[in-house]
Design a protein around this nucleic acid. Sequence first.
DNA 1: CTGAAAGCGCTAACAA
DNA 2: TTGTTAGCGCTTTCAG
Lengths: 361, 361
Amino acid sequence: MSGARSGSRVRDREGVERVPEGVVTIHDVAREAGVSIATVSRALAGSATVAPATAGRVRRAAAALGYEPNRAARQLVTGRGQSVGLVIPDLENPFYSSVAKGMQNRVRAAGLTAIIADTDEDVAREREVLAQLATDVDRLILASPRAADTDLLALAARSRVVLINRSLAGVPAVTGDNADGIRQALGHLLALGHTRIGYAGGPVTSWSDAERRAGLTAAVDAAHDQGRGVTIVDLGAFRPGPAGGLAAADLAISERVSAVLAFNDQLALGLLGRLAERGVAVPEAMSVVGFDDVPVARLLAPALTTVVVPAQRMGAAAVDLLLAGTPAARPEDGPGALLRVLPVELQVRRSTAQAAGRRER
Amino acid sequence: MSGARSGSRVRDREGVERVPEGVVTIHDVAREAGVSIATVSRALAGSATVAPATAGRVRRAAAALGYEPNRAARQLVTGRGQSVGLVIPDLENPFYSSVAKGMQNRVRAAGLTAIIADTDEDVAREREVLAQLATDVDRLILASPRAADTDLLALAARSRVVLINRSLAGVPAVTGDNADGIRQALGHLLALGHTRIGYAGGPVTSWSDAERRAGLTAAVDAAHDQGRGVTIVDLGAFRPGPAGGLAAADLAISERVSAVLAFNDQLALGLLGRLAERGVAVPEAMSVVGFDDVPVARLLAPALTTVVVPAQRMGAAAVDLLLAGTPAARPEDGPGALLRVLPVELQVRRSTAQAAGRRER
DNA sequence: CTGAAAGCGCTAACAA
DNA sequence: TTGTTAGCGCTTTCAG
C-alpha cells in the first residue's frame, strides 16, 4: 500500500504547481502539517489525545489547504451516514414545506445533509420511497406516514426513526396537540353561537384526522355536559388538498351548517374558494376554521381563522429527537414515552363570525 | 486479504442461522451464486461481458438475499455520488416547493437521491450551503442563485451544474420565458385599457427580475410604436414574499396606478391582502397580475390573473439536463447554447378588469 | 501522544 | 468469460 499517492496530482500535465482543487485528502494535510494521517484524523475529530500544539498545526494546515473530509470514505468506515432522510406526503402542501424547511435547517446546522422525499400522499409510493431511502440513510423522519404500524416498527428496528404526526409504541414522535386545537376551534364557534357545525375530515388513513375527530367528540361531549347543544355534521373524508375543499363546500351548503371546521388549511382554502364562487358570504353566512396556519392563511380575503401549528418547529424538534441519544425502541414503554407534543393555538381572523340567527345581538 | 470475512455474522451469538439483516454484502451474493465478487459487480451493473446464465444466477442470488449495494463504497471508488443537490432560495415559497417536487420526483425515478437545501434568500447562506454541499455532491441544481457569476463558474468547473432561472455562459440552464410572460401580461392590461401601470419588482439581485424588467421595457416600446401610450411606474424592489406585497400595495395606491404587475405571485398575494385591507376593490379599482401561478393563485378571492410558469416541469427538466451527457462548460458557446427556455402562458382570472376610466364601454 | 497498518464494500484494471 | 488484486479516503485498533 503506497502511502504517498495523492498530491502528485496537484501538478497538471505542464508540470506547473497548482492549488489542488477539491481533491485535497487527509494525506495532503498530513504532509503539510508534518504528521501522520492518523493524527490528522484524530485532531480534526477533536480527540483529546492529541497535543494542543499538534492539533493547532493540523487545523491550520487543513484550513490552508481547504480540506474537506470525504464523506463517502468516512461513512464507509464508520458505517454511519452523514445524512438524514425526510419523508413527507406532499411538498406542495405548504404545511409540509414548512416542516421540511425547519427540518432541513436544523439538519444542516448539525453538519449533516437532508434528503427529502415526497410520496404524493400515496401508500404504495411511500413504500417505494422508504425502501429506496433505507439503503442509504439510517436516520429517518417520517411526516404523517400512511404505512401500517408493523411496517413502521420494522423500519424503526433497523434505522433510527422519528415520526411526525403519528404515534407508535416505542418510536419517538413529534405532534401538535390535535385534541386541544380542535377543542379551541370548537369553543370559538360555540362562543359565536353556532350550533350546527360541519367537520370536513382528512383522509381516513390519517392519524392526525383520527386525533382531531376524537378531540372533537370529546369537546362536544364536554359542551353537552355544560348544557350547550351542538350538532356536528360529518361532511366526510377528503384528500387534504384544496380540491377536496370544493366538494366539502357544496356539502356544507346542502347540510345547512353555519360553520365548518376543516381538517387543514388546504381544505379550508378550497372551501373558501368554492363558497365565494357559489355566492355564500364568509363569514356572514358561513364561518370557516382551518388547521395548521400555513403562510397564506393570513393573506386570504377573508383572512382565515385557524389553529396555529408550529410546522417549522416540528421539523426542527424531530431532528433534535433524532440526533439526541434516542433510546432504542422499547414497545413496553407504550406510546407517549417518547412523544413530544407541541402546543397549538387558535388564531382568530376574519373567516369566523356570529351565527346568522344570532346576528341581531 | 481474507476473502471470506462477511457472512460469519449471519450467525448470532447462539449460533442460530438467521437472515442477514441489511448487512448483505457483495461477498455474500458471490458465495451464494458461486462466483467472484467481480462477477457480481459486473452482472449487477449490466455489463455485456457476463454470460447470461451467470448473470441470471447472480441476479437471483442478490434478490434472494435482498442485496443492496453500499452506496458509500461505490461512491468512494467511482468518485461519483448517487445524489444530486438542489439549492433553492425558500422552501416556503410555493413556486420553489413545486420546483423541488418536480426535481425530486425525477431524481428518484433515476434511482438517485435528492438533497435539498434552502438558503433563505440570502447570499451568505447560499455560499455556506454551496460549500457544504460541494463536498458530498458532484451534481447540483441551483434555482435562482444569487451568487456572483465567477463563483458560479468556479462551481461549474468542479461539479456538473444546472441553473434554474439564471443564465451563464457555458452552464446549462432552464428558465421560463420571462420576457414573453411579461409581454403577455402587459398586453392583457393594455387591452383592458390600462395606461398607468405599476411594476412591483423582485430583489435587485434577481436574474428573473432583470429579465422581466427588460421584457417589460421592450413590450412598452413596442406598444408606443403602435401608437399606444403606457406609463410604467416602477414601484421598487421587494423581497419576493407576501410581506413585500404589502408595501407595494400602498405605493400602488399613492402612485394612482390602475393596475399592478407583480414580480411573482407571492408579492401579488401580499398586494391583494393589503388592497382588501385598505378597501381598494380588486379588480374594480385596481387590477393585479402575478407571475408563476402557484397553487393557491386560483383559490384566492378574487382568483389571481397570472403568468403560468411550469414549475414542476422546470425541476424535472433541470434533472434531465443534469443527467444527460451535458457537455463541459465552454464559455465560447456563449449563453443560450445550453439554455432550455420553457414557454409560459397568461392565465386570466378574476383579479383583472377594465380600467376604471373605461368602465362605461 | 503519535505512527503503522488493517480494512469498510465496492469497482476497475489486469491476468488467465 | 471470469477471477485476482489494488486501491478509493478515512477511522481505528494496536504498538510504540
